[in-house]
Design a binder for these strands. Sequence first.
DNA 1: GCCATGAACCAAAGCGGTTTGAATGGGCGG
DNA 2: CCGCCCATTCAAACCGCTTTGGTTCATGGC
Lengths: 364, 364
Amino acid sequence: MNCFSSAVSPNFKPLWNTRGESVNLKELAALLKLSPTTVSRALNGYPEVSEATRRRVLAAAREHNYAPNSFAKQLATGRSHAIGHVVPLSAHEMINPHFSDFISGAGRVYSRLGYDMVISVVPDTEEEATYRKMASRRSVDGVVIHGPVAGDRRYDILREIGLPFVVHGRFPEHMDGYSWLDVNNKRAFRRATDFLLDLGHRRIALLNGLDHMSFAIRRRMGYEEALTARGVAVDPALVFSEEMVEPYGHARGTQLLRSAAPPSAILCSSIIVALGVARAARDLGLRLGEDLSVITHDDELSFLQAQSDVPMFTSTRSSMQAAGSRAAEMLIAKIQDPGLPETHELWEAVLTVGGSTGPAPQTR
Amino acid sequence: MNCFSSAVSPNFKPLWNTRGESVNLKELAALLKLSPTTVSRALNGYPEVSEATRRRVLAAAREHNYAPNSFAKQLATGRSHAIGHVVPLSAHEMINPHFSDFISGAGRVYSRLGYDMVISVVPDTEEEATYRKMASRRSVDGVVIHGPVAGDRRYDILREIGLPFVVHGRFPEHMDGYSWLDVNNKRAFRRATDFLLDLGHRRIALLNGLDHMSFAIRRRMGYEEALTARGVAVDPALVFSEEMVEPYGHARGTQLLRSAAPPSAILCSSIIVALGVARAARDLGLRLGEDLSVITHDDELSFLQAQSDVPMFTSTRSSMQAAGSRAAEMLIAKIQDPGLPETHELWEAVLTVGGSTGPAPQTR
DNA sequence: GCCATGAACCAAAGCGGTTTGAATGGGCGG
DNA sequence: CCGCCCATTCAAACCGCTTTGGTTCATGGC
């Protein structure tokens, strides 16, 4: 039926049987009575093959279920058509859901543009080594950097090893020297805080993400700026920085609301934290938007999206998925044309009014 | 400082500069005045090199920052040391958070055992083609299958193309012919329902996942079995099957609780849905564990884990991360020894009593 | 003293593509 | 009818690593 036997090599042991009847380039060429050179060119759209031959080749390729071996291709061309994402396992050993939404957006772009997505989940002690390994093995054409933090070593490492990369967020210490895509976190939280201040709130708490994260730093700046601009002192007792999980919102929310001088509004860095706060409020019999106002940053996580007109929370919105897609596009553009200048994109979050905010209660 | 020049080939254009000073095997061999053969063997632990040479080679490799080109290695050995995960984008275009927890568990195992994780996010129309492509390109050594459904075509496809795979869950129509790892969903929901029945509940609703999903089918069976065994009729008005997002729990919860004959207990297929139900209950002024009982399946999603003693929800628990890790191990074992028999693991969920259940209210 | 033995090392042939440099042959102007 | 040019096609080298099938040389048994 086809001519495998002639091409069987003495020392090649396939890992699993090829029942899918796939063919390699040489075999395909033999079938067509053409040279591998011509077949390769026909398939890759080079101009020096006749239209007739090209059609014949394409038809045969489809018929015999030809797919180029990606490793051979990479070896010959020097590019892997793969993008890496390194996920350091924090002490909490979790992949957060914001990340998975980002990945989902990026992944779609990759598959559309013919790239593979390689995710390395590594102990954070091995993060640096992982980047170096990716670089020297040439296993990916570039990487997307997540969660930049204050004093992030990756800035130097990546520039040193010369692997193309795009950062989701910004290294706090460096605005240049690399491409990034970030949400204007400072402005978003400035606006959210202003919004609460306009409603008459004066004791406003902030349940932020981890302290050293770049986005958390900027959000806090926006929050503090807004307060200071109105002459409201920043009360450290109202500011928390922890990993953004639901129990965090619940625990700190409960603690704040039960305190002697409870806030009338709470700003959250993630809708997951806001859910915890909402639970705490309800436990205490407080009504959102009346007794307590909550504004949260909303990454539009897919599994929490309601389609209702009035959103549950007033929020500063910016889609994680969209960010993932765009970051992927930026990186691939850079890979395909290394001469391109750096790209910087700062997205404004949309302040969306939902049911969780209202004027500050009079009695207090 | 080192001798690149001699090995520079005429037609190789590196994608990005190698500033990390990496060396390839041939160069390393030249540096050591050894043949590539010997160096390769030394590095890979073959017995026919002297201990002295091996040490010398290892030292030089480390010193010159040698990392084998993974593609060349794959090309020569026929194995990619990569595992694929295909994520079809549903109409809802989301990667659900259960999946990301699974991935996090699997990813850790991969990095420990030296495998890469390749995630393909594809339109669900291209899912089959993606598997075929992975197979004929040899780009992965095996795949993990997620979310088996009724009438799943992947069973036939994967067996046809002969790519090693492990299923998280089970194909409803086939218990054999492949390796799987599943939670005993039927039993878990049988027990949960029995638990509610024992507490005196008779109107018990089920907010299940999508109808055709294997796990949803089995959970429903457990639920119906329990009811039937006690002579309680299954009321179709109490059973829903939708994508497991928070607004689903809220909308259906609200609808159920406002209905003429509201349930006194609700069974949820995901803690995310349960959060929605809890929100609905609180909106209506009902107290969990008193006016309304809720039991949910709990995948122990990392971002919702509380460390408190009394969990928020009574639940049937089984860790997604652990499942991911185990599935990864199973697959790699199979890849490394294809002769291994199929593995089937059925995990029992743990019924954990939390604050969301209590005796059925008398007044009704 | 000779040859079998085995330890240590090596040359070369793959793996499956891409790319360079050259060959082939048909069309066309002179 | 001849020679040149362009359109096609091809052989061979190469990417970097593994592995087969030697070779070399010291050792030791007889």
